[in-house]
Design a protein around this nucleic acid. Structure first.
Lengths: 195, 195
DNA sequence: CCTATAGTAGACCGATCGTTTCAGAATTCA
DNA sequence: TGAATTCTGAAACGATCGGTCTACTATAGG
């Protein structure tokens, strides 16, 4: 009963997510969010409670529609060598494809780690969970691939290289690509050792 | 001629730098800067022109008093194996020493890369210059140490690990230390290969 | 001491911040 | 159709933003 919303929640969250991704939490204003979503602030507050509520929804959407699809190659039937290479190559083509002036450069959660998460326990938890998930996925594929040596350490190294690449993607695409190239060579050299 | 300043410029810049370091550019207000420096805004504007002017001075100070002293072990008479290990160990003890609620966690320029530098060409230049300097220093020490293989790539990997560690230092000290531990093991394994 | 110069305190500026309020529009159920 | 419910637009809230202005103070050189 009652009036129906005139907007699609998922579309609003996606638009807000891209703006937060581009500018960060603090530098994004409610007025900006109204513009980019096409929805009046009263409706935003009705639906999400606060700016932070909308941000949290945006982060959840980021995890669900950006991060996890990317990690799936490390966990599904492609897990192993193919998955590791597909993961790195997927990141590389994403970095190469996104234009310099676009939102969606780098990683929303990496930006969050450098900003909000410094003083916000809830944000820190999300970032930490993301990193745990990333390392677990990398480790799983390393295990399936039969990589030798300390797999935890190898997963840490790979995750660190991707995190650095995401940070660099906001500064210089070529440098980000160079880091991901190094990550790829790490993977191939580890697996070559095994044969 | 005329009245003399009642504050020391260097002390003001240091205090402002630590606040920017902790909170980032956007989340730091002029009122905060007045509090932490003990200097009225009219004096700050007289001395630095704008909030951004003070930030630029803070970044310069950060480069001069934090970054370059840390890089010196990679370039001076200790350059080589000792320098590389000293650099990594220096970072590790710094990460371990800084309490969780302190400013000076992580790296001002890493935070800047994720924030300001995304949309500010001048900030991007500074961050890029820092990374160039870091890689050059690492490469120099790798060369002096006689590390085998592609030194550019090894320098990129080491710099990526330290950058990730600086990002993680704001989230979880232990994870940052684990990454730096991996960096240290990379160094020793490369140099072991050479013997 | 006098005057020119430079630094400081605090009030004040318009703009913008996140949030709230409220009247009215749209819809469902009876 | 009438009442209950929900969503929406616009205006407004106090707080705070970065920045400016002015009156006053302190000092150096003559």
């Amino acid at each position: 009963m009652g009036r129906l919303p005139t907007f699609e929640t998922t579309a609003v969250v996606t638009a807000a997510r891209d703006l937060f991704w581009d500018r960060g939490y603090e530098a994004t204003s409610i007025a900006d969010l109204e513009t980019v979503t096409g929805v009046n602030r009263s409706s935003l507050y009705h639906a999400f409670g606060s700016k932070r509520g909308l941000f949290d929804a945006a982060v959840q959407d980021y995890l669900d529609t950006v991060i996890r699809p990317r990690l799936s190659v490390l966990l599904g039937p492609t897990a192993g060598t193919a998955g590791l290479l597909a993961y790195v190559d997927g990141l590389r083509s994403a970095v190469a494809a996104v234009p310099d002036d676009s939102p969606r450069r780098g990683c929303l959660l990496v930006n969050c780690a450098a900003g909000l998460a410094g003083h916000d326990a809830a944000a820190r938890l999300v970032v930490d969970g993301y990193r745990t998930e990333l390392i677990a996925a990398l480790r799983h594929s390393l295990e399936v691939a039969g990589a030798p040596g300390d797999l935890d350490e190898k997963a840490i190294v790979l995750s660190s290289l991707t995190i650095s690449a995401m940070l660099l993607a906001r500064i210089d695409r070529r440098e980000a690509d160079a880091v991901l190239g190094a990550a790829r060579r790490h993977v191939t050299s580890w697996l070559a050792d095994d044969r």
